[in-house]
Nucleic acid binder design. Structure first.
Length: 580
RNA sequence: CGGGAUGUGGCCCAGCUUGGUAGGGCACUGCGUUCGGGACGCAGGAGUCGCGCGUUCAAAUCGCGCCAUCCCGACCA
């Protein structure tokens, strides 16, 4: 394409409403424009990159045996009522009515629609397994859209759904997608890693997130130095400590202490001259309307997702003052496990504690020298806390590290959550009606592009890896008014076009500096500079955007050299991709 | 939803404290010079100063209300 004919508005200024680098660069490079909060238009350059990602996804999904479909974005309320999510999905689901006052929503995801489609047309085990996918616009009415297309309300997503006859089949479907996702992100030239994750409101029991590692990532990931263990912070397991026996002999007599207006862990440890490690924090949660006490060591943090999963609750939040008063008989700050009337569960961190401090369930009083087995009882000990830097890997005991990442893909084993609710059944070999086992698999398209920029940029702009680059080569004639120079540039341009290489000819009558800056900003991997200086000896320059390296080639060899470099760039070496 | 900030030609911003002709840089149009890392000169076009109400002889500027955008938090694939 000739630059002079392109719709490619680049900008020198950093947009005032863009915070992260990828957002700034996408605007400056003329890739996107904001229409309204969380809703973006893609300009030609941006859309080319989107299509590169989509194409890689299509190829890998097809290779994995999935078939592409296209499902409606507008979905009837009845379907969501049937799955139960009309109530549960919350305000993120944008709902509206048509002229007949019938309820609809904009699809934030498509489990309901696909399950409806499959249950109507798949009747026998002979038709299973099937994996259907689409690349489609989703709408989620995010509370706080941010970081440009990274957390947008309207965004492109590849979503796939697998249907299997049994668990073993579902396992295979999941593995296929897991492999396909690794291939996809590797081909995109990203540094990423799959991590174990919680399955959230989509539901299901088992899932992995694909995280692109980046400082600006919204998610914290725990990775093991020694083994392959990697998990989202919210999912990362904390190993169960060994039970230490024989501590009963050291039990001291229970003591009640007047602690006027002393509530927080800091205040208690200060007041009683003990460390937070000597205190058991008692948090009262509201689990589906019922109070539940969670015990944890004073210096540690409860992982609400673990509590929610452990209790099997649909909704979990910290109890309000009223519920605390009702459950403990005391205001906030004085809850404890001794003589409490609610369910009591405890984190492993308190399992081996003796003579600890805790609230007295009485205003302005705490208890000292409390011991399990004598003073209070818990229903069970479990892993309920957030993992910390000093914790060890739950798999191999090695040291762990915290890194940040951007979630670009997520694979879930759904089980029968939707197929059961929506009666997606088939007849097995014996004529028995059985429920299909489902999996679902998503990739954020725009987010993948943004994540790629987060990982590949410098002071001058974007540095595209070859597979995602909107164009592979840009030819920059230093001065278009010098006939020889421009002719040579055009010749290379035409030859590259004939080779099927994606190339821009910067034919604008601009100074060289302007063109160099724009080429760097939009991040084209290879730049051919055609100038009088080298042309007199029949040569041109080839500059590598990533390394900054410049090489001189004769006009006669430049096309072959580019062909080679483009081909190399399209096949990034395997192995380096998963490094962090 | 809580806290904070911002809103002035397409973009980045000054002006607001102390009310009085709406400014600069970039971009854009024309002419000339220049031409390998964001050139220069001259001449131009382009703005309901987010919206509304109020105070005032007079409001970008002061007051009240609203809206939008961004950041932090809560929440969330």
């Amino acid at each position: 394409m000739r630059y002079s004919e392109m719709f490619l508005p680049t900008g020198r200024e950093i947009p005032s409403d863009a915070e992260v680098i990828s957002h700034q660069l996408m605007i400056r490079a003329g890739m996107i424009r904001k229409l309204t909060s969380g809703i973006y238009s893609y300009l030609p350059l941006g859309y080319r990159v989107i299509r590169k990602v989509e194409q890689i996804i299509r190829e890998e999904m097809n290779k994995a045996g999935a078939q592409e479909v296209c499902l409606p974005m507008v979905q009837p309320a009845e379907l969501w009522q049937e799955s139960g999510r009309w109530e549960f999905y919350g305000k993120e689901l944008l709902r509206f009515h048509d002229r007949h006052e019938r309820g609809y929503c904009l699809g934030p995801t498509h489990e309901e629609v696909i399950t409806d489609m499959v249950r109507n047309d798949i009747k026998t085990y002979r038709q299973l397994p099937r994996n259907l996918y689409q690349i489609q616009t989703k709408f989620r009415d995010e509370v706080r859209p941010r970081f440009g297309v990274m957390r947008a309300r309207e965004f492109g997503m590849k979503d796939a759904y697998s249907f299997d006859a049994d668990e073993a089949g579902a396992e295979i479907s999941y593995e296929k997608m897991f492999t396909a996702y690794n291939n996809i992100f590797r081909r995109c030239g990203l540094k990423f890693r799959p991590v174990e994750a919680d399955s959230g409101s989509i539901g299901g029991k088992y899932s992995h997130e694909f995280m692109v590692t980046a400082e600006s990532g919204e998610d914290a990931i725990v990775v093991c130095d020694k083994c392959h263990y990697a998990a989202n912070l919210e999912k990362a397991e904390v190993a169960k400590p060994d039970k230490i026996d024989g501590m009963e002999k050291d039990w001291l007599p229970q003591e009640s202490v007047h602690t006027p207006n002393v509530r927080t862990i800091e205040e208690v440890s200060e007041f009683l001259q003990v460390t937070p490690q000597d205190i058991i924090k008692t948090l009262i949660f509201n689990a589906d309307g019922k109070p539940c006490a969670v015990l944890i060591r004073g210096d540690q943090e409860v992982n609400e997702i673990k509590v929610k999963n452990y209790l099997g609750a649909n909704e979990l939040e910290l109890a309000d003052d009223e519920m605390i008063m009702q459950a403990t008989g005391a205001p906030r700050g004085f809850a404890g496990a001794v003589n409490i009337k609610t369910r009591v569960v405890a984190d492993f961190s308190v399992m081996n504690m003796v003579n600890f401090v805790t609230g007295a369930n009485k205003e302005d009083y705490h208890l000292k020298n409390i011991n399990f087995g004598r003073d209070c009882k818990v229903e069970s000990f479990a892993d309920l806390r957030v993992i910390e830097k000093d914790d060890k890997c739950p798999r191999c005991g090695g040291d762990i590290q915290f890194v940040r990442g951007i979630e670009v893909g997520h694979v879930f084993k759904l089980g029968t959550k939707y197929s059961k609710a929506m009666k997606a059944v088939y007849l097995d070999r014996d004529g028995q009606e059985k429920i299909m086992i489902m999996g679902c698999y998503g990739i954020g398209i725009g987010r993948t592009v943004a994540a790629c920029i987060e990982q590949n940029n410098d002071a001058n702009g974007i540095v595209w890896p070859m597979p995602l680059a909107p164009y592979q080569v840009i030819i920059t004639p230093v001065n278009v008014n010098e006939g020889e120079v421009f002719k040579a540039a055009e010749k290379i341009y035409n030859e590259l076009l004939a080779e099927g290489i994606e190339v821009i000819l910067d034919d604008r009558d601009e100074r060289a500096g302007v063109k160099f800056k724009d080429a760097d900003l939009i991040g084209i991997p290879l730049r051919v500079t055609v100038g009088q200086k080298n042309l007199v000896s029949g040569n041109v320059e080839l500059k590598n955007r990533q390394t900054g390296e410049t090489q001189i080639y004769p006009l006669t060899e430049i096309v072959a050299e580019i062909r080679k470099k483009v081909a190399e760039g399209l096949n990034p070496t395997a192995g380096q991709s998963t490094q962090v």
